[in-house]
Each structure stands twice: as structure tokens, then as C-alpha cells.
């Protein structure tokens, strides 16, 4: 059964809708439980689709050996997968997040469902392979789908390792990350010179610098974009929630500020998916709902920006 994604019809989105119909069974718009998933975007370098909303693990999944908190993380992952989610993103920098994700995947038997996105984060290129292998063991998976050079740390040394892994079939996609507007000039240089599949940057209702150069360059170079810190680690939502949701939010089927914020991000033509992090199943449902339904068009995006900037 094919669920056509309800989005406004730009040429790119129609193409994405067609790709949905040709993709793997669990990216055809139906979750394993038969409930419809939200919208998907295509990875430009392959055409494979990804749900527009993924799951970040910074802070939220770093719960150490706390069994109660690990259960809560597994519940979040279960809800995420049930609603058709795929991409989970972590890093060796995130404390115990990797083993907690691995624990959840093992308990849920979801290793085959997840689009595993992790990072290499070590200043020595020679130690990159060992760190990647340790990360893989934490995740309890055979291989990563995506590995990114975290915050561009020693990217000149790590990228050849990642490309070699991709070449030999031990990795599917290669990317680089930055956050909060740092090192944009350098990331541009890497995007222009390296055959990247993904780039990860910060983009949200307030932090929109990437709209100027990074996002257009990603489109030009066919690089998928993952958006981190969509809510500024919750601070943005805490500020917005002091204000009533405007009536026009209903036009894009948003009932919360979080959904407005996510729809604003994932409706940008260059963005592939956003990765909000949460410890709450209710928030997972709220976030995943924002992946589908009508997306804001250019006029609505301007309206959202104008409204938020005026607050």
C-alpha cells in the first residue's frame, strides 16, 4: 500500500513522492505496525528515502547504567520506530548514548530497521578506525549506514578512512557535521571538494545562517542535510511556549510550537531530515506527526519567520 505524502507540489517533492513508491518496504510510507508514517525525503546521492524526522541522542540518551532511564529510552525508540522513524544519530562524544541506543535496538530487535548514523570524533586519524569499531560494538549492529566526521575534527585524516569503508561496502554514506554556526567556511570548502553524501548543521526558527550558503550549496552538490538542535536543546520551545500558537498554524496542521518549528525546518528544499532529541514518548509522537501533512510553502515560511522574529 502506498501512502502518498501530502505536500505542496513542487517539482522536487513530486519526484520524492515517486521515489517513495519505489523504495524499500519500510520506507514506502507504512510503518511495521501498519500505521502511516510521516513524509519522507530522498537522499540526493542515492535516491533512498528517509523520514523527515529522525532521533537525536545528545544529552537525552546519556543516562549511564540507570535501568529506569534506559527503559524510558527504549520506549522512546519503540514509539519512534512504530511511527516509521528510521534515522538515529549519535556520537562517541555523547557519553553513554551509544550503548543506550545499542541496548534499545537489541531489546526491540530493531537493528534491521534503524538507519544508523554515528560519528568519528578523535583528533588522530590513526585512531579513527578503532573508535568506529568500538562505536559499532556499542550499537550492536553489523555496519553503520552513515558515518560523519564530528565537528570537522581532523576531517582531512578521517574522510579517506570513511570513503575507503564506503568503497569496500562497510559503510553506506559519508558526511561531516558542525553545530551552532561554527566553521561554516571550512564546511563549505569540504562540501565543495569532497564527495559527501551528508552534511549535518544547526538550523531552526532563529538560527538561519545556513540558508545563505550551506543549504544552497548542499542542493547544488546533491548532499543530504541533517539538521541538529532544531529546538536549541529545548530553550527555543520554552521561549515560544510563552506565546499562543497563531491561528495560521492550523493551515499546516500544527497543534504545537514544536511542530511549527520542525515543519519550518524540514520544508526547506535542501533539508533531508531533522533530529530532535527527547526522553518523552509524547514528544516523539508530536515530532513524528510534524514529518507528515501539509508542509509550509515559501509564503508560509516567510510568515512563520516574520511572526517569530517579532516575538
Amino acid at each position: 500500500m502506498l501512502q502518498l505524502v501530502l505536500i505542496r507540489s513542487t517539482r522536487r517533492e513530486i519526484l520524492q513522492g515517486l521515489v517513495v513508491g519505489c523504495a524499500a518496504p519500510w520506507s514506502t510510507g507504512v510503518s511495521a505496525q501498519g500505521r502511516p508514517v510521516g513524509g519522507v525525503n530522498a537522499i540526493p546521492s542515492s535516491g533512498e528515502t528517509l523520514p523527515r524526522v529522525g532521533l537525536g541522542t545528545w544529552i537525552t540518551f546519556n543516562v549511564g547504567n540507570d535501568r529506569v532511564a534506559r527503559d524510558a529510552c527504549a520506549d522512546v525508540m519503540k514509539a519512534f520506530f512504530d511511527l516509521g522513524g528510521r534515522l538515529i544519530d549519535s556520537s562517541p562524544m555523547y557519553g553513554s548514548s551509544q550503548p543506550v541506543v545499542g541496548d534499545g535496538l537489541r531489546r526491540l530487535g530493531a537493528a534491521a530497521k534503524v538507519f544508523a548514523a554515528d560519528k568519528v570524533w578523535v583528533s588522530s586519524g590513526a585512531r579513527g578506525a578503532a573508535q568506529i569499531e568500538e562505536s559499532r560494538r556499542h550499537w550492536n549492529i553489523e555496519r553503520f549506514d552513515l558515518l560523519q566526521v564530528h565537528n570537522l575534527l581532523a576531517w582531512e585524516e578521517h574522510l579517506p578512512t570513511l570513503f575507503a569503508m564506503k568503497q569496500s561496502g562497510r559503510l553506506r554514506y559519508v558526511g561531516v557535521t558542525t553545530s551552532e554556526g561554527r566553521r561554516h567556511r571550512e564546511i563549505e570548502q569540504v562540501m565543495r571538494t569532497q564527495p559527501l553524501d551528508f552534511v549535518q548543521v544547526t538550523y531552526n526558527l532563529l538560527d538561519r545562517e545556513v540558508e545563505q550558503r550551506i543549504l544552497p550549496l548542499a542542493r547544488e552538490r546533491n548532499i543530504a542535510v541533517i539538521v541538529n538542535r532544531p529546538f536549541r536543546e529545548g530553550a527555543l520551545l520554552r521561549d515560544l511556549q510563552r506565546h499562543r500558537l497563531p491561528a495560521w498554524a492550523a493551515e499546516i496542521e500544527c497543534s504545537t510550537w514544536a511542530q511549527v518549528g520542525l515543519k519550518f525546518i524540514v520544508s526547506h528544499p535542501a533539508v533531508t531530515c531533522a533530529i530532535p532529541a527527547t526522553t518523552s514518548v509524547a514528544h516523539v509522537r508530536e515530532n513524528m506527526a510534524a514529518a507528515g501533512g501539509p508542509m509550509p510553502d515559501a509564503a508560509m515560511r516567510q510568515r512563520i519567520i516574520a511572526y517569530v522574529d517579532a516575538l
Binding site: W58, I59, T60, D66, A69, M93
Partner: peptide
């Protein structure tokens, strides 16, 4: 300073 905080207050207290 907050960029270096890698866990939540709840996790810290639970520890």
C-alpha cells in the same frame, strides 16, 4: 558553559 554539559539534571540527580 552549557555546551559542555552532556547530561540532564535528572540524570545527574539519579546518579
Amino acid at each position: 558553559l552549557s555546551d559542555f554539559l552532556m547530561f540532564s539534571a535528572r540524570t545527574y540527580r539519579r546518579l
